[in-house]
Amino acid sequence: MTASSAKFRCAGCGIQLQHEHRESPGYVPANAMEREPAICQRCFRIKHYNEASSVTVDQDEFLRLLGGIASTDSLVVHIVDLFDFQGSLISGLQRFVGHNPVLLAVNKIDLLPLVTNWNRIRNWVQKQARENGLRVVDVVLCSAKRGIGFDRVVEAVSQLRGDRDVYVVGATNVGKSTLINRLIKDYSDLERELTVSRYPGTTLDAVHIPLEDGKHIVDTPGIVYESRLTELIPRRDLASVLPDKPLKPLTYQLNEKQTLFFGAMARFDFVEGERQSFTAYLSSAVPVHRTKLERADELYAEHKGKMLAPPDEEGLAELPAWTRHRLRIPRGAQQDIFVSGLGWLKANSEAGALVDVWAPKGVKVLLRESLI
Rank of each mutant, 00 (worst) to 15 (best):
Y225W: 05
T251D: 08
L354E: 10
A296E: 10
L104Q: 08
G26R: 03
Y49R: 11
L190G: 06
Q126H: 11
I39F: 05
I223A: 12
S143W: 08
P310Q: 04
S188C: 15
T230S: 04
P310R: 03
L366P: 02
G343D: 01
Q335G: 03
T2W: 11
Q41E: 10
Q335H: 06
V288L: 09
D312C: 07
E318K: 11
P243Q: 08
H325I: 04
E191L: 15
A333Y: 05
L179M: 13
Y167P: 03
N50W: 01
G263E: 06
I69P: 00
C142L: 13
R235I: 08
D58M: 10
R368T: 13
R95G: 14
I209N: 00
Y199H: 15
S53P: 00
N132M: 13
F270V: 05
A264D: 02
L183G: 01
D151C: 08
T195M: 12
N100L: 14
G201R: 03
T116V: 15
Y167L: 14
A6P: 05
P243H: 04
E256H: 11
V137K: 02
Q253G: 11
R368G: 10
C40Q: 03
S177N: 10
K145P: 03
G87E: 07
R326D: 06
A70D: 07
C13N: 11
Y225M: 12
S54R: 04
T72E: 13
S227K: 01
G12L: 04
P210L: 15
V106F: 02
V355A: 06
D336I: 00
R198M: 09
G162K: 12
K346M: 14
L299G: 04
T291H: 05
P200M: 15
A359K: 02
